[in-house]
Design a protein around this nucleic acid. Sequence first.
DNA 1: CGTATTTGACCAGCGC
DNA 2: GCGCTGGTCAAATACG
Length: 261
Amino acid sequence: MSTQQDISDKEKVQALEAQIESLHKENEELKNMIGVMTDNYHNLQAHANSFLTHEAGRPSESWSSQDSSKKQMKGTLKAKSTQVLVRMDAEGSLIVKDGYQWRKYGQKITKDNPSPRAYFRCSTSSDCPVRKKVQRCAGDKSILVVTYEGEHAHALCDDPIGSTSRTHGTINGSVPGIPCTVPLNPSPSSASLDLTLSRTNDATYRPPQNNNHHLHQHNNSNTNFLVEYVASLMRDPNFITALAAAVGQSMIGGHDHTKKK
DNA sequence: CGTATTTGACCAGCGC
DNA sequence: GCGCTGGTCAAATACG
């Protein structure tokens, strides 16, 4: 009996070891995927930068370039401006969870967009100069255009979901075929990030081609699992929010930690 | 009761 | 100078 017990224990140990091994592999896969995603992100950013320099001389045509370019052309160039597209939550509020606490201080109807524009200032730290404007995209009302101005004078809030705030915004996935374009400011210090493109329709979601190619170098079952896992991550609003917060942090105040010391 | 949000008033910049 | 527009202020209000 004890030998049978030993055998079953050994099998269990082997199964656990195999599981650990597969987890290691999975971990490696995820690391590789993060690397690929980082590369893609940097490529996109390079494209955006070249696009910006290309477009800098042309008159802008959409709402935010009209309003913010005026300001930025007029001496606020030093204020870092970042524009982000997010999908509006079900409540249809102009509130976006990005890891910081925001206090709304105004709302305006602007000339070129029937939807009201909301003005927020960062309340995570009392001396934080960062402000943001949130307005629905004129072309697609389910998309929010968020414009951040300035750099945070503090680290990212510990409460990335914003539960301490009464805000209930959500950064969700995308709307397929978003009609609204990303108006890019001529300012060299500006940046734009389209979070609505973070995934496509749930039913048809496939990882980007690059990632697929990359993944096919490994065994299929593991790949399928990874694809499903990544897809589930992309469906998770919390993950998207955290990712957006991290990206936003790196774009807006990414150097704070180094600056402060 | 303290804090966040709302909203009308006010201010500054720009074009004519 | 005047009017338009975007951005901000601050009193009133709502909420937990």
